[in-house]
């Protein structure tokens, strides 16, 4: 707590470095199970292995710097509740993709989305209606994309 800021390991960078290290190890290991080919005819595992090794090396460098506490960035998730809500709403909308009644689903999704972002019901419904109409006109009738 009382240590000078520069000596505190950077937690964000430690986590990022750790995740990338895991990715690098996974790539290296999984690539070695793909056919590796020969010198003159490199196989499917050749390139992913290279990328994996490079990722491991680079993430070790990042972890090293993070431990020294040289970087200054901090991960901070402001308004997590609002973001969670928006992501959750979108997730449900996508889950229902292709189940029919595209226009109705889209309208309800947009209206809830806007209402969640503290627009009045009236505004939410109007904007959602306008957006739904635009998207249906452009994609369903203009480009003949079949949205269900």
């Amino acid at each position: 707590m009382s240590e000078p800021a520069s000596a505190v390991p950077n937690r964000t960078d430690l986590i990022v470095g750790g995740l990338f290290l895991a990715l690098g190890v996974y790539l290296t290991v999984s690539a070695s199970m793909l056919p590796s080919g020969s010198g003159g005819l490199p196989g499917a595992g050749f390139f992913p292995r290279g990328v994996g090794v490079a990722t491991v090396l680079l993430s070790v460098v990042l972890l090293f710097n993070a431990l020294k506490g040289t970087a200054t960035s901090r991960f901070a998730l402001e308004h997590g509740r609002v973001i969670g809500g928006v992501v959750g709403l979108t997730f449900v909308y996508l889950l229902l993709w292709g189940t029919g009644l595209f226009a109705l689903r889209t309208f309800v999704f947009l209206a809830l989305f806007l209402r969640f972002l503290e627009q009045s019901w009236r505004t939410s419904a109007t904007v959602a209606g306008a957006l739904t109409a635009t998207i249906a006109a452009a994609f369903q009738y203009g480009l003949r994309v079949s949205l269900e």
Binding site: L94, V127, F139, L143
Partner: peptide, 18 residues
């Protein structure tokens, strides 16, 4: 802003599908 955000999410989704 919220209108713009709703529009981006919608157009991004439908555009990706199309």
């Amino acid at each position: 802003n919220p209108w713009l955000w709703a529009g981006i999410v919608l157009f991004g989704t439908v555009g990706s599908y199309a």
